[in-house]
Design a protein around this nucleic acid. Structure first.
Length: 511
DNA sequence: TTCCGACAGTGGGGTCGCAAT
DNA sequence: ATTGCGACCCCACTATCGGAA
């Protein structure tokens, strides 16, 4: 198969807005893909590279060589070159990677170059990722989308499923059941505005502490333990203490879902940055472990001693978890059998408040009868976190891309410091509707004092109301704090910058 | 030889608009 | 009306490499 065929499908998928049409275009290509090329082709069209690390990005893609006149590159040789780029390391690696990349681009036609650039920079922007690629695969082989999806979630890899079904037909989907040692796409939670809303939505449910750490999936098979992150990256070597905790459980084999988090002596959570830094440390694991041990805390059990538990209701899975994991290894939890009862609601509120008082992020509310929906951001898990509202001053704005092209999209936010100067605290592009974007683009251009390629700097006169989950320490911004997950609510034309929140008010959220 | 900056690739994330149901 | 998906980009952090000190 030629790279040109893939690039052509990309163009086609990007050109249509309809999802069915995108799926149909993907299906046509997959149907004529040789099974041995399928893992590469389908992964590319899901917007990713099979190689996790390539070592080249937008910088290396700048100033590409002139495109080739005719399409000769095959999928196989393109993938082989990308793999070689990914393998290249050591002194001189940067130049060699760039040489390999430019050699590849020189043999690619203009559309092929565009496709490769989008793929490598992670900005394919075709309006289709894993979910639609999986659906396209289902159409190509005559399987139901649900069956393909389940296999992908349990098999952990779209590419492997594609190769199997293209070679052996839909019957091959049966091979992809949960297996200890093979990561499963984790179940995700949706959000709710308040605890009451979550309780109303779910009915009988359990409340669990939401710990501000890193999600881990732990597979134990006898003496063998493997640990995976939310994106199924293996991190076993970096987390010896999690491995040890898994080996202490009273089981032969198990697949557990949980969180790792750095706690202080009193059991209170340390800043998220410390946990994330520790999980990211690979070079001196022993040193990092000595400086900051992490605590694994489990909340779900997907399999135990040869039994798959995914389709059991939340409460049945939890009962199994209780059997194998001791108290401190499990999240704190409260069962709410009847959310309409005033006493149980009060207990739920109190659980939430105690959890926050202990320094945690919030609570997760889980429907008592829900199965474990691997890979879904389902309605049966709902997270509830407190939000804070701030009025900040717009200092500048950056031009958007894609569907936001032509709009000032990314706002630079500031607040007044004690000495009267305006200090930048962070940026946001979230929460802006088309109406807000249109209005803001016009208003900010009126206020512009300085126009750059990237956007405009403005007279600091426009106040914007933002919601944040909190603030965190920052070395990037002069006040030493920055916003966490800021999103715009509305512009406050009724407020002057003097009436906006101060840096001190923002810093107070650090606690 | 050591230090520092730039880049790449992780982790965490909310809300919008659109298509499909 | 609701749901699922992809796009929009943020933050901090670690690792890697090249080149300056």
């Amino acid at each position: 198969m030629l790279l040109a065929d893939v690039a052509e499908t990309w163009r086609e998928v990007a050109a249509t807005a309809g999802r069915s049409a995108k799926v149909a275009a993907l299906a046509r290509l997959f149907a004529e893909t040789e099974p041995e090329r399928a893992p590469v082709v389908i992964t590319w069209l899901a917007g990713r590279l099979p190689q996790r690390r390539l070592g080249v990005g937008w910088r290396a893609l700048a100033e590409p060589p002139p495109p080739a006149g005719s399409a000769r590159l095959t999928v196989a040789e393109t993938d082989a070159t990308l793999a070689e780029i990914g393998r290249t390391a050591g002194a001189g690696a940067e130049a060699r990677r760039r040489r390999l990349l430019h050699g590849l681009l020189a043999r690619a036609t203009e559309p092929e170059q565009s496709f490769l650039a989008g793929l490598i920079s992670g900005e394919l922007r075709q309006g289709a990722l894993d979910a639609l690629a999986a659906e396209g695969l289902a159409v190509a082989v005559g399987a139901t989308p649900a069956a393909v999806r389940r296999s992908v979630m349990l098999g952990g890899s779209l590419g492997a499923v594609a190769e199997a079904v293209l070679a052996r037909g839909p019957a091959a989907l049966a091979e992809f059941t949960l297996r200890v040692g093979r990561p499963v796409a984790p179940m995700l939670a949706s959000g709710a505005g308040s605890l009451d809303e979550a309780l109303d939505r779910l009915g009988p449910c359990a409340l669990e502490e939401k710990l501000d750490g890193i999600r881990v999936q732990v597979h134990r098979d006898g003496d063998t333990v493997r640990i995976y992150t939310r994106t199924l990256d293996e991190v076993t070597e970096r987390l010896p203490e999690v491995r040890a905790a898994a080996l202490e459980l009273a089981v032969e084999s198990a697949v557990l879902d949980g969180e790792v988090i750095a706690l202080d002596e009193a059991g209170r959570p340390r800043p998220f940055q410390e946990t994330a830094g520790r999980v990211g440390s690979r070079l001196d694991v022993a040193g990092a472990l000595a400086a900051l041990p992490l605590s694994p805390v489990f909340f779900d059990l997907l399999a135990v001693d040869g039994r798959e538990l995914l389709d059991l209701p939340t409460e049945a899975r939890h009962a199994e978890l209780v059997r194998i994991a001791p108290d401190p290894r499990r999240v704190r939890r409260l069962l709410v059998t009847d959310p309409s009862s005033a006493e149980q609601r009060a207990a739920a509120r109190e659980f939430n408040e105690r959890t926050l008082a202990r320094g945690h992020e919030g609570v997760l509310v889980k429907a008592a009868d829900a199965p474990y929906s691997a890979g879904r951001r389902g309605a049966s898990w709902v997270k509830v976190k407190p939000v804070y509202t701030l009025d900040l001053v717009v200092l500048a704005a950056e031009w958007g891309h894609g569907r936001r092209a032509g709009w000032l999209s990314n706002l630079h936010l500031g607040a007044r410091d004690e000495d009267g100067s305006l200090v930048m605290l962070g940026k946001t592009f979230k929460g802006l509707t088309d109406a807000l974007l249109t209005w803001g683009t016009e208003r900010l251009q009126e206020l512009a004092v300085d126009r750059e390629r990237w956007g405009v700097r403005v007279r600091p006169e426009l106040v914007v109301e933002v919601r944040v989950d909190g603030v965190q320490r920052s070395s990037r911004y002069p006040a030493g704090v920055t916003l966490r997950f800021a999103r715009v609510v509305r512009y406050r034309e009724d407020k002057t910058p003097d009436e906006a929140d101060s840096v001190a008010a923002v810093r107070a959220l650090l606690r």
